[in-house]
Amino acid sequence: MNFNDLNIYKTIYETKSINKAAKELGYAQSNLTARLKAIEHELNSTLFVRSNQGVAPTDNGNKVYRFAVKALRNWQKLQDTLVIRKTILSSELLVNFLIAKKKFFITDYAVTIKKSNQLESELTQRYYDVVVTFNQFDLPNYRLKQTANLPACFLKGKQEDGSTCPIAINSDLTCPFRKLTLKLCPDKTRLLEIDSLETIMQLVKRGEAVALLPQYLIDNDYQKVNDHNFNIPYYCYQYQI
């Protein structure tokens, strides 16, 4: 039994229903039923009596609930007293934007960067305290805390007019910059697929391509192609036990 199991047990106890607990935690009901059976098997004890009205705790079930509440409270107190670097999972574009805008301090986090199409798979392997992503998802214990926008525009190299350059797009099919570029640019013959954000940025910097990129990149090496601005929504999720 781990802390996640204790939280599952506590929620079932307090809602008096496996179905209600599943909805509250974002699990499938069958998963919670399986976890409860595993807990009862590990403790070699019946903790709830099932009925059509839900579940009712046994005497042992009440004891386990008191233990779960105390253990979870102590775990939270321990976390509050320790200096722990929180973990954050995001894509390269978003991490650079958040750092540039001082949305978080890099020294406070252990940062993992993945492509947009790899984030959800990564979350099945381990948990992260914070996930910042262009794509919404629905996974147990992750709660949406904020929705915001990343300002974007088409950028070109400082010495180029950009009118005849190819338009570089990310080959990641889930990339929102790719999706918006395809929507805005009907002339598909100008599109150039690249499997690297760094390569796209270097091509734009050298004047060999234009691309839809975050506005925070505008400096001595990048300038706007035109006056059109776009907002790319992103989502911030927080892990909660």
Score class of each variant (00 low, 15 high):
180 L>E: 11
210 V>C: 02
37 K>P: 00
62 N>P: 04
180 L>D: 07
199 T>N: 05
68 A>N: 03
68 A>P: 03
149 N>S: 06
135 N>Q: 14
31 N>I: 13
202 Q>F: 08
30 S>T: 15
207 G>L: 05
46 T>H: 09
180 L>W: 06
56 A>T: 15
190 R>S: 10
127 Y>W: 08
67 F>Q: 09
199 T>F: 04
67 F>I: 12
192 L>V: 03
237 Y>G: 02
204 V>D: 01
154 F>D: 03
130 V>L: 14
97 F>L: 12
105 F>P: 02
203 L>D: 00
143 R>D: 00
177 F>H: 03
206 R>L: 11
68 A>G: 02
106 I>M: 13
184 L>C: 04
110 A>E: 15
145 K>G: 04
241 I>K: 15
185 C>V: 14
32 L>I: 05
196 S>L: 04
38 A>L: 05
215 Q>T: 11
33 T>D: 14
151 P>Q: 07
224 K>N: 13
66 R>F: 07
205 K>P: 00
33 T>F: 15
168 A>V: 08
171 S>M: 07
5 D>I: 09
40 E>I: 01
35 R>D: 01
96 N>M: 14
73 R>H: 11
129 D>I: 06
112 T>P: 12
113 I>Q: 13
131 V>H: 05
13 Y>I: 04
211 A>N: 02
11 T>Y: 01
111 V>L: 05
71 A>Y: 04
151 P>Y: 09
123 L>Q: 01
62 N>D: 12
229 N>Y: 11
230 F>R: 07
204 V>A: 07
177 F>M: 04
19 N>C: 06
23 K>H: 13
177 F>E: 02
130 V>G: 04
175 C>K: 04
135 N>A: 11
151 P>S: 08
88 I>P: 02
118 Q>H: 15
180 L>I: 12
187 D>Y: 05
